[in-house]
């Protein structure tokens, strides 16, 4: 079995940060290369879960829209992933963009209505979407790598 892509990226990042970057005298170029190393490190950490995270997010948005908005099955069905089909990352991303547009419109409608209960539920969805996507929790790791 071959090593995974994320393992290759992880090793590349470590080589850049620890091996090549210190060899450069020019402070600007050294910092720039070190930053690339850190960004590749983040990519490696998130690489494997990118597809499944998008799929989960799309499903979560669809569930919320069906349960709490004015939309119904026919509005969201085009963006569903059927169980035995496999969508590319690009297709999942396109679905995600379309679903985000629908979600934004429905949230705006709730804000106008002042529906506190549904707004609370959408904020819980927002929290879950953000939690899954964010890479900012890796900031400590970056600082460790840079030092």
């Amino acid at each position: 079995m071959k090593p995974d892509i994320n393992i290759a990226l992880l090793n590349a990042a470590q080589e850049i940060i620890n091996r090549f970057s210190p060899l450069i005298d020019d402070e600007y170029e050294r910092s720039r290369l070190g930053s690339w190393g850190a960004l590749i490190l983040i990519s490696a950490m998130k690489f494997n879960e990118a597809g499944s995270a998008l799929q989960k997010e799309n499903l979560e948005i669809i569930d919320w829209l069906l349960a709490s908005s004015r939309l119904d099955e026919k509005d969201v069905n085009p963006y569903r992933t059927i169980e035995d089909t496999c969508k590319s990352l690009e297709e999942l991303d396109q679905d995600n963009q379309a679903l985000r547009v629908l979600l934004n419109k429905e949230v705006e409608h709730l804000e106008k209505k002042g529906d506190g209960i549904l707004l609370k539920s959408v904020f819980s969805l927002f929290r879950s979407m953000h939690q899954r996507r964010k890479v900012s929790e890796l900031i400590g790791l970056l600082q460790q790598a840079e030092s």
Partner: peptide, 9 residues
């Protein structure tokens, strides 16, 4: 690059 509902809100 796309719509961010949290930001729009």
């Amino acid at each position: 690059i796309g719509v961010e509902p949290i930001l729009e809100s």
